[in-house]
Design a protein around this nucleic acid. Structure first.
Length: 557
RNA sequence: GGGCCCGUAGCUCAGUGGAUAGAGCGACCGCCUCCUAAGCGGUAGGCCGCGGGUUCAACUCCCGCCGGGCCCGCCA
């Protein structure tokens, strides 16, 4: 990363200052300090707060420490054309043009790999997300979960981790039984047979639709079966239909899972029972009120948790433990689950369950995202799968498009509740900031097409003379492009995908300003060549950023 | 009542303890003879919920309070 080079230069200056006796030996090695591009261009291209941080540990005023560092920082050099001390003690750095040029060439050389690093060193990470109950179509809430999880997965890949994407299918338990009984009732109704619709059953139109399909394909064949078998057969059909719908919606949304893990398989394979046996052996279970409890409080949970109900059926949590143990057994060092805020209370118990089996609590990470409040013309839309009254993710994607939906979901911090005004998004989708970014990319592509049409060959970046790039708009655009690796690193390690959207907008802004001020295709061949290298680097930066968000880098608009 | 999260411009939201707190939308005023005006420039709009504390420095960290959300089930 560019800022790593700058850090190294400053660290060397500190070493030399210590050797010269200008700083005490305790100044080394430098503590973590920040290098960032200040908003105000008068503060240089990059600013370091090292002197401010260092003054605390070595004594002296920040300015005195800064002066000492500055005396030993070689300027001008191949990297820096200037450096000075400003404000409370910032080291303001001005980049040498050839330094920035080298990084611009790197964008071309690395191309699709630009922005990536190898911080993860191939460590295997499993990201589990969406995992919505297959009891109905995906909701707009699952859309947020999917967008967050998918972008985190892509970010981790960009950081050099080996990532696997997984959907945990809740194909076992009360909710699926209830759905199957709801469809069964609709099926019998469709055949004009007597049927009692279950209390609290699923009333959505999709329930009746599946029932109609079953009636159409199977006729009355299922109606004659013994009730238990009929319900099981219908349950299978319903599950398959729901998963097919979910999978196709996610594909439309740009998400493909490596594995779909069945909860039922954990019960059928005996994995749940083995975990219960092991917990009992470790004296972490006890019986109370006819139920079997896990001593979750031993691991920091605020209460103990039921694993097996008094009627003998295991709880959802009982399967959660073997499920996550299975992830470790498959060779993943680090687990990330993306959960909605309503599950925040479950984190402690699952982590506790894994600790009971000796897993490092830090290796199980849960990313919590807040809810999506859907509005229609400002009016809150009440949503419930059971009532069948909701807007699906498919509706949303159909209405506003995949790109706008993905960008919108990603641009808001997962920690903040999100308002999504459906009618507004539908009516004025062109106002979505995604178009601002896509437009910048399309404009660059248009320039490149125009250049080709005019017979102007795009120069090889390594050989191009970039010295004609002197305008402030050119300088700012170049700086924005080359710091993509820093953004990817921060967004990935901090699990803050929204930073990608902020960066994409800033990079697009730098381009639009450049475009307004500077013409690329001119009579000056040297200038034209240099600007072509610049905008083609910007194109790669925008494309790589949009790829991470899951938004198309369109060439025409 | 307890736990967690959130209070930043009219609205929706960014904001690594750091310099004069930003963007989009909405409002108003300008800019196409020219590679895409889905663009650019400008104006207006802020006790960063409130009060303490830590710090050279607090929207940022700590404590308390106020307001909102989620959870606190032998549902998922």
């Amino acid at each position: 990363m560019l800022t790593h080079e700058l850090r190294a230069l400053i660290a060397q200056a500190v070493d030399r200052a210590i050797a010269a006796g200008d700083l005490p030996p305790t100044a080394a090695p430098p503590p973590s300090f920040e290098i960032e591009a200040p908003r105000d261009p008068r503060h240089g291209d990059f600013a370091a707060n090292l002197a401010l941080v260092l003054a605390r540990t070595v004594g002296g005023t920040p300015r005195a420490v800064g002066e000492a560092i500055l005396r030993h920082l070689p300027v001008p050099s191949a990297a820096l054309r200037g450096a000075d001390l400003a404000g409370p003690g910032f080291l303001n750095l001005k980049l040498a043009p050839e330094f920035l040029h080298r990084w611009l060439r790197r964008v071309h050389a690395d191309d699709r790999r630009f922005g990536r690093t190898d911080a993860g060193r191939g460590r295997r990470v499993l990201v589990e997300y969406v995992s919505a109950n297959p009891s109905g179509p995906l909701t707009v809430g699952s859309g947020r979960n999917g967008a967050v999880g998918e972008t985190i997965a892509r970010l981790l890949e960009a950081l050099g981790y080996t990532v696997s994407r997984e959907y945990y299918v809740n194909d076992y338990g009360n909710q699926m039984d209830l759905l199957a009984r709801s469809v069964e009732a609709r099926y019998l109704e469709a055949l004009d047979r007597p049927a009692a619709f279950p209390e609290d059953g699923y009333r959505g139109a999709y329930v009746a639709e599946i029932a109609r399909q079953i009636a159409a394909s199977q006729g009355a064949a299922l109606a004659g079966l013994a009730p238990a078998e009929r319900l099981a057969r219908i349950g299978e059909i319903v599950l398959r239909a729901m998963l097919a719908d979910i999978r196709s919606t996610l594909e439309t949304f740009g998400i493909t899972f490596d594995t779909w893990f069945s909860e039922r398989s954990l019960h059928e394979s005996g994995a749940v029972q083995r975990v219960l046996d092991e917990l009992r052996r470790r004296d972490l279970l006890y019986e109370q009120d006819g139920a079997l409890w896990f001593r979750a409080t031993r691991f920091g949970d605020d209460k103990d948790r039921v694993l097996v109900r008094s009627d003998g059926r295991p709880t959802y949590f009982a399967a959660d433990i073997p499920y996550h143990l299975d992830k470790y057994a498959r060779g993943f060092d680090h687990l990330i689950d993306v959960w909605g805020i309503d599950h925040i209370g479950d984190v402690a118990r699952v982590r506790g369950g894994l600790q009971a089996f000796g897993k490092d609590p830090a290796s199980f990470e849960v990313l919590i995202h807040q809810h999506v409040r859907l509005r229609n013309e400002g009016e809150a839309v009440r949503m419930s799968k059971r009532s069948g009254e909701f807007v699906t993710l498919r509706d949303l994607v159909d209405a506003v498009g995949r790109d706008a939906a993905r960008f919108f979901y990603t641009m808001t911090s997962p920690a903040v509740p999100m308002d999504f005004d459906f009618a507004l998004a539908q009516r004025r989708s062109a106002d979505n900031p995604v178009y601002y970014v896509q437009y910048a990319h399309a404009r660059i592509c248009s320039i490149l097409r125009e250049a080709e049409r005019a017979g102007i060959a795009a120069p090889a970046a390594e050989a191009a003379d970039l010295t004609p790039l002197t305008a402030p708009e050119e300088w700012l655009l170049a700086k924005r492009v080359v710091t993509l690796p820093e953004v990817v690193y921060a967004a990935g390690t901090r699990r803050e995908p929204q930073r990608l959207c902020a960066y994409a907008r800033e990079l697009a802004e730098a381009f639009h300003v450049f475009y307004t001020q500077c013409r690329v295709l001119t009579d000056d061949a040297r200038l034209t060549a240099a600007r072509l290298v610049l905008v083609d680097a910007a194109r790669r930066g925008l494309r790589n950023t949009l790829d991470l968000i899951g938004v198309a880098a369109v060439e025409h608009m």
